Simulated scan of single mutants.
Amino acid sequence: MKLEVEFNGLILNGFLALFVILTGLGISAYWTYLGTIYSLGISVAGGILLFVACLFCLGGFIRQEPNEARVMMFFGSYEGTFKQVGFYWVNPFINGKKLSLRARNLDVEPIKVNDKQGNPIMIGLVLVWKLSDTYKAMFEIDAQTMAQTTQAHSNVNMIMRAFENFVKIQSDAALRQTAGQYAYDANESDDALTLRGGGDEINKQLEAKLDERLAMAGIEIVEARINYLAYAPEIAAVMLRRQQADAIIAAREKIVEGAVSMVKMAIDKITENDVVELDDDKKAAMVSNLMVVLCGEDNAQPVVNTGTLNM
Rank of each mutant, 00 (worst) to 15 (best):
N95G: 00
G198Y: 07
V293Q: 12
M291V: 05
L278N: 07
N187R: 04
E6N: 10
G80H: 02
D107P: 01
D190W: 07
L229M: 06
Q170R: 13
R102P: 00
D200I: 12
A208I: 14
F163C: 00
V71D: 00
M158Q: 15
C54V: 01
A251I: 06
T178C: 06
A183N: 08
A45Y: 15
A17N: 02
E257P: 00
N305T: 09
N8V: 01
D142G: 01
V90D: 00
Q144K: 15
V256L: 12
G199D: 11
K264M: 15
S154M: 01
G180C: 08
K209C: 02
C295E: 14
E65F: 13
T194V: 04
I48R: 04
E272C: 04
G24M: 15
G86S: 12
R104A: 14
D190K: 08
I235Y: 04
L49C: 13
L131D: 01
L210V: 06
M158F: 11
D172L: 13
G35I: 04
L18D: 09
G198L: 05
K83Y: 07
A152E: 01
N13M: 02
T308W: 04
D246A: 14
T23W: 11
M160V: 06
I248Y: 07
F93E: 00
A208F: 13
A69Q: 03
Q64T: 12
D268K: 14
Y182G: 07
D172R: 09
G59Y: 07
N67W: 12
L175V: 09
G24Y: 03
P92S: 02
L193H: 05
P110S: 07
D107E: 14
Y88A: 02
A215D: 13
F93L: 07
P110Q: 07
W129Q: 04
K97S: 01
N289W: 08
G86D: 12
L193C: 05
